[in-house]
Each structure stands twice: as structure tokens, then as C-alpha cells.
Design a protein around this nucleic acid. Sequence first.
RNA 1: GCCGGGGUGGCGAAAUUGGUAGACGCGCUAGCCUUAGGAGCUAGUGGAGCAAUCUAUGGAGGUUCGAGUCCUCUCCCCGGCACCA
Length: 1164
Amino acid sequence: MKKKLKGGATSKYNPATIEPKWQKKWEKEKLYVAKEKAGKKKFYGLIEFPYPSGDGLHVGHIRSNTAMDIICRKRRREGFEVLYPIGWDAFGLPTENYAIKTGIQPSVVTKKNTDTFRKQLKALGFSFDWSREVNTTDPKYYRWTQWIFLQLLKNGLAYKKKMTINWCPKDLIGLANEEVVNGRCERCGTPVEKREKEQWMLAITKYAERLDRDLDDVDYLPKIKTQQRNWIGKSEGAEIDFRLTIKNSKTRFVILHGFDGGATTDFHPWLKEVLEKRGHEVELPELPNAYHPKEAEQVEYVLKNCKLDENTVIVAHSLGAVVAMKALMKLNKPISGLVLVAAAVDPKFDKFYESRPFAKEFDWKYDYALLQKLTGGKVAVLSDLKEKHRSRYLKFLAEKLNARFVETSSVEEHFCAKEEPEVLKAVTPSIKVFTTRPDTLFGATYMVLAPENPWVKIVLSQLENKTEVEAYIAKASHETEIERTDATKEKTGVELKGVKAVNPANNEEIPVWIADYVLSDYGTGAIMAVPAHDERDWEFAKKFGLPIRHVVIPQRIGFPGELAFRPNEPVVNRRVIRAVVKHWSDNSYAVLTWKDNGWKTFISGGIEEGEDPVTAAKREIFEEIGYKNAEFVGPIGGPVQAKFYAPNKKQNRIDIQQGLLFKLKNDERVDVSPDELKIHEMQWLPWESLGEFMKGTIMDSFLFERLNSGNNQYFIGSGILIDSGQFSGRDSESAMKEITESVGGKWVTKYKLRDWVFSRQRYWGEPIPVVHCDACEAKDPDNGGWVPIPEKDLPVKLPVVKNYKPTQTGESPLAAMTKWVNVKCPVCKGPAKRETDTMPNWAGSSWYYLRYVDPKNATRFADSKKLKYWTPVDWYNGGMEHTTLHLLYSRFWHKFLFDQGVVPTSEPYTKRTSHGLILAEFGVKMSKSKGNVVNPDTIVKAVGADALRVYEMFMGPFDQPIAWDTDNIAGSRRFIERVWNMRQRITGGAAESSPASAQTDRIIHKTIKKVGDDIEAMRFNTAISSLMILVNELEKQGGGRREEEVEIPAAISRENFEILLKLLAPFAPHVTEELWVSLGNKKSIHLSDWPAYDASLAADDEVKIIVQVNGKVRGSFMAKQGAQMEDLERLAKGLPEAKKWLEGKQIGKVIVVPNRLVNIVLTN
RNA sequence: GCCGGGGUGGCGAAAUUGGUAGACGCGCUAGCCUUAGGAGCUAGUGGAGCAAUCUAUGGAGGUUCGAGUCCUCUCCCCGGCACCA
């Protein structure tokens, strides 16, 4: 043993020699190389693979890597087979920009940078499995990135589309929505512009629902889930059609009557009158041979005598429908619209018509496609509900013509309904709006379209203020994203004069505006504006003097019953509290308030005698919710009962002092000071008794607010519907779907998430493996002529170019490489051109964790058995900055691969945590330009990797951002040295049994528990502090380290020292290994078992009991764990420090908290 | 504006979830050791006071025997979202 000491730990601690020594040894012995071991439980720990920038490793990398390293080291020693891999996310702009500046090939720069990073990472002793290193820029890697792209393409999830994209004028690159932050380029901060460009897109929106829903099943930090949900932006609502009426439209109606001469024909002149009154031109031709229909003759007549052009709407009734359609096919020129009313029936559809001679005379074959084209989709089929015979046929017709199918109660309605004939409704355009609040439909007093909404262009020519509108559209299109989405700016907009929309709920005509606060790419690009119940609409309406109509009153929020019975809230942990409040005066009204979860809750006092307006109103509400026979309690002049509802499970008392509070005096509201309200008595009531208890009093605060404030504000919440036709009086939330149905709306789900812009016009990225072939496009125009490179020909390698600079036109530098670009089409062998766009750097990082599983596989992207063993990743730690982009993209790809049957799980990561940023001193961001970047190499050189690791873990809570403080590292280094120096005091054998060592045992076991628990919860700072406490304790053992008369300090037991080393090993792997081996251990400490603790030893057997008098600490004494309360009380009273305070005083009560304290309360 | 997370010594931070506020570390003070000290060791270290004691967790108020922790109001900082209908 003595010999070993000499060579090992007796010398001065010198990390510069021991750290590289062990790093080499571990690598040689393949200590951290992971192998699939059937039957052995696995653990896959992952950190985000770094982007090898020219700046070298950042201290922030070390924070995240060390944390996961600690967890992985612990897992290995708990018997898991651990995979902790590392690689390089090496495609990307900084490298390319460097190449542009210097002319050095990006691949060369990348090589140099990764070499630096590798060296730096290795110097820190992370237990990475270096044999699995991957690099996204390696053709052997990106071959499979390209392969995944081809699978996406094959499954219709990749497509090329001309679209406005976010364009960064500085980087000359298209950006995904996710890369635009506050209207600026995420990388360089330049305001982005809009550009039209053909882009490859990935249909991530098809996975929106699953990406949202599956968050339920993964263990991500709540804030990460929230951010993901936020980004996906799921919301449910209704799509509702609002018809437009165009005042000055010069539509000419041609009304073709049926040939049966039935009564409906009488309505036609009426319709003519209605239409003419609206400024339309109407033709009502008398068709010849009405009673002896001859199809050809009728058609000829119509073609000869009626003017049919693109401004014409044909309204055809019964058999006139046949003529109309035949004439139209023959004419073969577009018209403005076609309305078929109760069209006659093809005998095939109904036996009734088989016997009708007229029906047989017609040719029932139509070219439906042609008709659709000629009418531009503006076709309506109107049906009388009573028309039993025809209904099936009419539905068939509507479907064939892709027409609106309108059912009304009678034919009269079609032609001469009170507000507006159905005929007219059918041909006027209708605009879909999306709303999450269809319950407020009756309050929609105007409509707003996004300036880009296609309808604006359609109606533009017919507007009275065309120029003004055009000017506004032009202005809006020139605005940058920042200007446009600045929520604080004043609302602007322009009315479309001459156009009105019809609110389908009440058939009122409402104005139509365009305004840039409505976004064209969300929902339908059009909204119904409900100023009374939406803040933005409110602002807009106030500014432009638009009408405001309240249709929801926040009525039922006010009383506890409503809260108690709100259907969506879990019932657990609710209590009702009864408080008896002293009545402060006669004929006044006690109201208590408190706030919880944003609900203002008011609780009534009693009810006064007589039917004052408030009491009457109260009774009304009370009865409305079903307490018909309820009795009001609360006697005059006596105590008033107030009811409380406590939804917060943590809350054990209700604060009612502050509540208040007003009283009513002569029907006027008078504020009351809290002093007037005295709590008399409070008691708990169980939840079950709520119903019974509720019967007492109920009142509604908002009743007063309504009485007092009037309609002077908007209200966003839900409540009771008013002024909403048949829905008035209903609960707004429950009526939503019914209102939607009543106007023919559809319940839909919308997402903020947009498809992923996957093209980059840059050099340093994965080439998109497709070619464009004109010949193939001619043959099959649907896929745009894009032909995938056959999988066997992958990878499409990135060629070496001379100039890396992107072009101003937005084309990749690859486009200039004609030799590379011009290829043979893999399908037809004709001439074709390669796609010159490359993939964004999110591509390679979306699946790298899968490649780690089988990084060298040349035939598949990973072996399925290996995938089955290792995936999913058990624990993934990374930065918060990647929670919306990288995390979402990789979840999307993973789900897609799961659907393809390639990976075994639908989610890639079981658990996701995040580390806080490391900032420079004074809390600012570390950056080269500020010159405050901390170089890890310098630190390692100065104090060693172990000290750096310990410092980074000790510096503060792992998930919080923290400023770097070089001075503090000294403490970590000192701590390690103290452990090092302890080595000289180790005795050979097990701990001797002495009082001191029994005490030490407890600390040892406590520390084992604490360190283990803290690592799991990522509380590394407190784990280290408990290790420091242990070291302090061991040093003290045997009477302290330094005693005047004793030269050699007292011994520390080897057993305890080894446990310390074992616990410290994940944090400081090198020094612990050195000391461990110096003790004669043959096997690495990192292969040793994780220490177990004895729960009974981890708890104290003796506890300090605090003695308080009147809540002030006066002393303490030691007592056995679990001592009797009476004994504690007796001991406390006998304590001299306490006695002093008790003399001559009367003891009121004594509170004894077992194992903690005794509080003696005096009465005087 | 909305949604999260915070505010505790000179500094980084702990606090078993309502029970001794400031663990652990940095820094600082005094002493020891030393040729030396940007090393090590010992003791001390929230503030006021000689002391007993009082007073302290952004601020104000409250509940409680007892509050950093619960309640009400309010101020500030950080992160996310931001005209998403």
C-alpha cells in the first residue's frame, strides 16, 4: 500500500498529467463504447450535437454535456447499457460565409473545426462513444438525409410551390417561418422581405394534429410543451359563409320558366321586380310551345333571343333547367352564374316521371365538367323541402355541378322571400370566415378581409372607392413583416364601398372592410368582426365608428354555484368554506370578493326584506338556474352567511378580509372599508355539502356592473347570450356548435403551423436529390416534371465549386455549375437539370440520433434491430432555443419514419430537458465581438477538466441562465484538492465502530440519497454542495485536520472515502479514478456499482427541537426521532432559555410539531 | 398586451413545501504557518447594538401559534408568444 501511495496520490494534485492519462486509457479500453446486449436494459442519453463553428467549444456546450455525462455515468453503474453519442451538425451558413470570405472550401473548414472541437471535447473526459461519431456533411451520412427526403417526396409530403417567402436580403436566403423572429432574420437581424419564389416545401401541417396530441405522452418540461403547442397553434372554431351583395353589380338575370305552366311561374314577375329594384337587368322570355316542350326548339329560342354573356345569371325553373343547361353547352361561353330551381327530373330517378311524356322527350345527358367550367363554379340548386320526388335528383345534380344546394320551406321562398329571394342568395358570392367564437355571430356588425384576400380583386371593379382601396392594398404589400405585425400600431383599414356582406344569423347587411390586422395566411383570410367581444375588432370599430352590439353578458361568472358546476373543471380538491360575517349595519348588502384563476368571485350575504331591485334580480338568476324553491337565509341584523368556494388545492384558508366590497344604500353602491367587515367564524365544509349549502344565497356581481357601466367595454369571456334570436338566454359556450350549424357553418380545426420551407439557395447544404425533366413534365404535368434520383444513385454529392457566393437573383451557386446541373433524366433518359436548391441545416439534425444507432451502415440508414434496441432516446437535453424548430422538425420526421414502418416508435424522445444559457460576466451574452468569450482550453489548463466540470455544475440551478464567474472556479478546484489530500489519511480497513463513525455513517447515507436524487432531478448544484458537506465532515473526523500536537492528522476510513469517490466520480471522473486506483482497485471506478443507501440510516435518529415562545425562537434541544409530544412539551418548558420567557406569564396553548418544534403561546 | 419563471447577504445561491432564513461556495476580516503568498490552516462574516435583544427574503396589507413559502393589491427583472380571429 505504501508503495502505491508514492506513485499515486501523495504527490501534488496535477490534473495536467492525470486527466490525459485516463482519457487515453478509457479510450483504449473502450470503456464507453455501447453495444446492443440482448436482455440488458438500455439507456440512450443524448445532447444536441454541436455546430463546429470556428470559435471553438463554448462553455455552454460543456454545461449540457457534463450534465448528461453525469446521468449516463450513473446509469452505467446502475446496470444499464448506455449509449451517449456525439457528432457534428456541420452544414450551415457561418462555414459557408467563411468560405466566401477566404475562398477555402467549406469541407476543409469543417474538417478543421471538427478536429478542434473533438480535441476540446475529449479533454473534458465526457463518456461519449466516439466510435459512433457522425457528421451531417459526410456523403455517407447525407446520403440518408436525401433518402428520407425521397421518401417524403414519394408520399406526397414534399412538393414544390411558388409562394411568397421570407427573404433575408443580407444572407440572400429564403427563411422558414420559424427562422423569422419579430420580422427579422434570426441569424443576422436584418428585416426580412417578401419574395415570390419556387420552393420545396414539406407538409408538416399534415402532422400538426399528431404533433400536438402526442405531447401528452412524452416527458418534456412543461414550458417546452407549451412552446411547442404555442407554435403549432391549434384552435377549434367554425367556418361560416357570409354572402356578399354588390350594390352596383350590373348582373343581368335571365329567368327561364318551366313548361308545365304551374303556379310557380306566377312568382317570376315578382322576382323580376325585386331584382330590378336592386338595379339588375332582368329578361323574362316567353318560351314557345310551353305545353308541348320540344327541347331543341326551346334551346334555339333561348340562344337566339336572350343575351347570354359573362354578366348573365340564368335562373331556370323546372324543365327550364334542361333548356338552360343545353343552351349553355351549345353556347360554350362562360356566364356569370346558374340557378336551377326545382329542376325537372330525369325519369331514371323516379318512377313517377317514367310515365310523363314530357320527360321522355328530353335528352338528359349533360357535360357536367363543361357546365362547371362555363359557370365558374357559381351554380346553385334550389329545392323545395316538400318536393319529395325531386330531392334525390336535385342532390345528384348539385353534386355533379359542384353547386350549392339550398333547401327552403317553399318555392315562394326561392323567388320572393321577405328579406331576399333565395335565388339571389344563390348567385351572390359568399366569403368564408373562420371564427373561434361562433357564439358571438349575432354580434358580427362588419366583416374584414385581409388586403390579399382574392375576393378583393374580384369585386374591385365594382367598388365606388376603387382607387382608395387599391392604394391601401399597395401600401399593405409594401410593408415589412415588422410594420405589419406590430400589434401596438393603430388599426388601419378601408371600407369596400358598394359591397355589403350579409350576416347569416340575422340577414342584416353589414359593411365590408379590408384591413391589415387580418392576416391572409391564417384561417380564411377573412373575419367576422364582433367588436363587443373582441379587443381588436373593438379598437377598429371605435376608430372607424362602426356599430357595436353586445350579445354575450358575463352573467354567471358571478356566483359560486356557477364555478362549482362549471363542467370542465375537475371536482377534486375543492372545498367550500362557510364564513359567518358580522353584519355591520341594517339595510346594507354584504359582498365579499376574492380572486382566483382570474375569476372574480362574489359571494352574497343575506337577502334583505322586501323586493328591492337587487333582491329581485338575485331571485331571478337564482330561479333561472333551477333553485326554484330555494330559501334565502341571512336574517336582518344578525350574522350574514357568506359562501366560499376554494378551487385552489394548496389553499387551506380563504382570505376574506380584503374582499369587499360595497353595500347598497338607497339603491346606490357605496364602497365599504374592510374594517366594517369582521370575520366572526369560519369553518370547513366538505365538497359534498356544497349543493345543500349553495341553497342559501346567490348573487351576481356583474348585474351591478351592467347597471352601472352600460355597454362601455368589450367582453371576451363566455356567458349568457342576449339579442341572439332563438339562442338568447342560452349559455354561450354550449350554443357555439348549434349556432354554427344553424347557418350552415362547419366546425373545423385550424393551426398556426405552416408547411416547412425546405429550400435554401445556398451551397453548403445537402443537395435536394431531384432533377427537372421537361419531357416528363409534358407527359405528366401533375408532378411538375420533378423526377427523383433513384435511391441506388444516392448520395447526390455536393460538387466542389469555385465561387460560393449566392446570387442576387436568389439562385444557389450550384446553378452556375453547368456540368453538374445538366444530367440525363433517370426516367426517360432525355436531358434534365438538377435541382440546385439545397436543404436547410435542420434537415441533417432531424434524424441524427437515429444514425448514431448504426452509424456505419452502408445499406440502410440504420439496422432495424439496432433501432429497436436503442430507440427512443430516453433523455435528451438541449437548449431552449431549439424547442420550436429542431424539436418540432425532428418529431415530424420521426413520425413520418414511424408511419413508413422504419422506426419502432412514434416519438423520438421520451424525456426532454433544457439547460440555461451561460452568459458572460455581468450577464451579457458571450460573443466574439464583445471579446468576453471564455475559452475552455484556458480553464482546463489552469484548473483541470474536473474542476471546470464541477464548477459548471455547481454554479447555479441547471435550468437557469447564469453569468460566468472565473473567480468562483477556485472553490471547485479547492474542493477537488481537498479530496485529493484526504488520500494520505486513508486507513487500510473498514471504518472502525466508534460514536464518530456512527455519526459519519448517517452523513454518508444521507449523501448517497441526496446525490442520487439530485442527479435525477438535475439539481447538480445541491448534489455537489452535499458532497462538500460530506468532505467537511470526513475532514473533521477524528478531531480535525490540524491539531497542534498531532503531526499526522487522524485517519479517514477507506470505506467512507471510497463511497465519496464513487459519488463524485460522475462529476469529476479523472481525479476520482486516479484516487480509486491508488487505493488498489483494479477495475475502473466508472464500472463500479452505484452506491446504495439504507433509508433508516439516511434519516436522523436524533433531531433538534426548536423551542419558540409566542412564535419567536428562544432555544433548542436534541430529542430522539419520533419522541412523544408530551415529552417534547415537558422538555421545552423545562429549557432554561424558554423558562426565562415563561416566568410570571400564563401559558395559553402549546403547539407541538413532532420532530420539529414546540411553540409555547402565552395568553398575556 | 397575454402566458410562463423569478425577485432572499457584497456575489452565485440553499431552504425537507407552513416550522431555527441564508446550507454549500466565492469574496471579505482577524489570527496561525511561511523567505514569500493570488498557497494552506483556524475562527468569524445579513443589518443594528457593548450586551440582553431587536430587525431582516422587492413593496404594502392580511391569514396563522408560526409565513421566503398561503391570500389580496402593487412594483421590478428574465423567458416565450405577440393583430392567429
